[in-house]
């Protein structure tokens, strides 16, 4: 019984408890723990198993061996534990390819009823569970190999499909890149044309183009007077700044309406909100479309799908000067 790290050596007190060697008071304390404390109960079971295994493998000596035989083996239940250990260790030893544990010599058995298992019984054959396990393992291996072959073929097919798709996507990407280049070139040409037109235009008063003529708030019920603006003669465009209640869209569009006829007299292009607080939309309306009367802007937000939602209405009045 000189196995370093073995629970028998680690817990000599438990060994003494199992062999009935502790004083009554101490034994009662451990009795209580063996029922009440889970960890202790588990540990005690481990130590008992190791003690029995040590006996079965002939590792007990001296006083411990004597006490094991005179006390421990006195109980039928504990003798059955020893018998179980003999069979179990033999089976485990065969499964592990090592020799079966040495059974304690018959002479050592103290109790008249205890007869250690014959060493030859069952020792010459592999345990049935082991044979069954081997067959099961072989069958499992065959199934696994078949599955892996199928999986391999499937993966190869998948790989070639992916390569084909990759090639198609590659050529599609190339085509898109070409289109993008064409678009860039067209934009560049448009920009140049715009520059040319601007340069060709007669010099207009810059203030009338750039100045913010009117800041408009979203129309609400029961508000007071409609904001008004007087057009200066010769104005090219009139600038408006529409205050947003919420910048829910990345793109907007504005329609100028004649409220008397509900007819749209002018429509903006796509506009982006300014990152101010609150967010605003700047609109420049050609002065030529405006007459002295009431107007309203219908502001629409553009969804990613291209659809528009009207998000606000801004009324104003043009006055003659």
């Amino acid at each position: 019984m000189s196995v370093p790290g073995d629970s028998i050596q680690d817990d000599p007190q438990l060994v003494r408890y199992l062999l009935g060697l502790l004083p009554e008071e101490e034994a009662e304390r451990l009795d209580e723990q063996s029922i009440v404390v889970d960890e202790f109960a588990a540990r005690l079971e481990c130590v008992e198993n190791d003690l029995v295994d040590a006996y079965v493998s002939g590792a007990l000596e001296g006083e411990i061996l004597a006490r094991f035989e005179s006390f421990y083996l006195a109980s039928p239940r504990r003798r059955e534990k020893v018998r179980f250990a003999e069979r179990f260790l033999a089976a485990a030893g065969r499964a592990g390819g090592v020799r079966a544990p040495a059974v304690a010599p018959p002479a050592a058995a103290p109790a008249s009823e205890y007869q250690p298992a014959r060493a030859d019984v069952g020792a010459h054959t592999a345990p049935r569970w082991l044979m069954a396990s081997s067959f099961a393992a072989a069958a499992m291996l065959l199934v696994t190999c078949g599955f892996l072959l199928l999986q391999d073929a499937r993966l190869r097919r998948g790989l070639s499909d992916a390569q084909r798709e990759g090639a198609v996507l590659g050529s599609r990407a190339q085509a898109l890149a070409g289109q993008l280049d064409d678009q860039r070139a067209a934009n560049s040409a448009t920009m140049k044309e715009l520059e040319r037109i601007r340069a060709a235009q007669p010099a207009a008063p810059s203030a009338s183009i750039a100045a913010v003529a009117l800041v408009l708030l979203p129309q609400a019920r029961g508000v007071g007077p409609v904001p008004a603006i007087a057009l200066e003669p010769g104005s090219g465009t009139v600038a408006f700044e529409l205050t947003l209640e919420a910048a829910d869209f990345a793109r907007y569009e504005v329609a100028l309406k004649d409220p008397a006829t509900n007819r749209i007299v002018w429509r903006s292009g796509v506009l982006a909100p300014r990152a101010t607080s609150p967010a605003t939309i700047a609109v420049a309306v050609p002065a030529g479309v405006l007459k002295p009367q009431h107007y309203s802007f219908d502001l629409s937000g553009r969804h990613a799908t291209g659809a528009f939602d009207i998000v606000g209405s801004y009324a104003f009045q043009i006055q003659s000067r």
């Binding site: 179980f84 089976a91 485990a92 030893g93 592990g96 049935r128 396990s133």
Partner: peptide, 24 residues
């Protein structure tokens, strides 16, 4: 014993056999 060993889950059987198989 053979029957009962077969009723264990494979990983449990492997563990218990490996744990107890060697001597000393």
């Amino acid at each position: 014993l053979d029957r009962c060993l077969l009723t264990l889950k494979p990983d449990q059987r492997e563990l218990v056999v490996d744990y107890y198989r060697d001597a000393q």
